[in-house]
């Protein structure tokens, strides 16, 4: 076990643990945001850079500070390490910069996005006050495409976290989509029209931190927060059958996995609670389910504080000015 201090809070973790996971052990404010790392998908992390933290002391043995901010999701802890997240001005500033980078080519179509209200990028942009864009250039655009008949990809919204690629690699037997091209032209694609046809492919939707991958069977064309999330289960031979139903009245609009406060699927029976495509896409009738009861969602700050509309509408205005 090694001891590490994050934002003045001490915690003891196993050797080899990452800074991010040590922070999650503490919980609360000290936890850095993670847009690409996903603890249930080995190999993820390191790409988005939103989880950057300051290492004020490298270790007990070598207490020198690290010159650069480090990606907490992929940096292992050292005994005696001192980390600053919320307490670091530098972190705040640079995280704001990362959020700005992630937003410059983002379409700001939150009003019509399925993810609105559960989007980490939206939360971050609110938190970092990205009300005004300094980006005056033309935005990168792609047409939405179908990845199979159940999943739609809005590449414009994608932040290239690579999570969906890892889902396809790790949960399905054949990967048909991936990252194509390079640099700012990188895109998630199947290259040619090809159906993603696999029992677990739908989990891509759940891991996507933004609204880039969406459920085509989702019938509600309005705000997620009008829906009531209900825990439910069914006897399924492919997955645990433990899901979340998003209901309006008596109707099921959408089925997802149950997610924890970091937006990751919760464990069910000791294993990550990925759900199968049958549960997700086919079972839209209340008879299919045993409804357990409502679930209080720790909705991300933006909605719970009722501040959803204001920051975004501001920015929309500024952008239309800038583009003239």
């Amino acid at each position: 076990m090694v001891k590490i201090t994050i934002d003045n809070v001490q915690v003891e973790v196993e050797e080899g643990t990452t800074i991010l996971n040590a922070a999650r052990k503490i919980g609360g404010e000290v936890v850095p945001p993670a847009m690409c790392y996903y603890s249930k998908l080995p190999g993820t992390g390191g790409k988005c850079r939103t989880c950057l933290v300051e290492v004020a002391a490298g270790s007990e043995k070598d207490p020198r500070p690290m010159p650069k901010l480090v990606a907490s999701c992929s940096t292992p802890v050292m005994d005696g390490m001192v980390v600053k997240n919320k307490t670091s001005e530098r972190v705040h500033e640079n995280r704001g910069a990362i959020v700005e980078f992630l937003l410059i080519n983002h379409p700001l179509d939150c009003p019509v996005c399925d993810q609105a209200g559960e989007c980490h990028l939206q939360d971050l942009s609110y938190e970092h006050g990205a009300e005004k864009t300094r980006y005056e250039e033309e935005r990168r655009t792609f047409d939405p495409i179908d990845i199979g008949d159940k999943i739609k990809l809005h590449m414009n919204r994608c932040i290239l976290c690579y999570r969906c690629v890892h889902v396809a690699d790790q949960l399905t037997d054949k990967r048909v989509h991936g990252v194509l091209n390079r640099g700012e032209h990188s895109e998630i694609s199947t290259y040619i029209e090809k159906a993603v046809d696999n029992d677990f492919s739908g989990n891509m939707i759940d891991v996507c931190p933004v609204g880039a991958l969406t459920d085509k069977t989702f019938r509600f064309k309005s705000r997620v927060w009008f829906l009531k999330p209900m825990e439910a289960s069914c006897a399924c031979d492919k997955c645990s059958g433990n899901v979340l139903l998003w209901m309006f009245g008596n109707e099921i609009y959408r089925v997802t996995a149950r997610k924890d406060k970091y937006g990751e699927v919760e464990d069910q029976n000791g294993k990550p609670g990925w759900i199968c495509n049958t549960c997700r896409f086919e079972k839209k009738s209340p008879e299919n389910w045993k409804i357990i009861g409502p679930r209080t969602i720790n909705r991300h700050s933006v909605i719970s504080q009722g501040k959803y509309i204001s920051p975004r509408s501001n920015s929309t205005k500024n952008i239309s000015n800038g583009n003239k």
Binding site: K47, F101, L160, H185
Partner: peptide
């Protein structure tokens, strides 16, 4: 550099492209 960025991390992918355009 914008042309040669691999594109996997956001500051470089977006930042190099932005600088090039400006």
């Amino acid at each position: 550099y914008a042309h040669e960025s691999c594109g996997q991390c956001s500051p470089c992918r977006e930042g190099t492209g932005w600088m090039e355009k400006v």
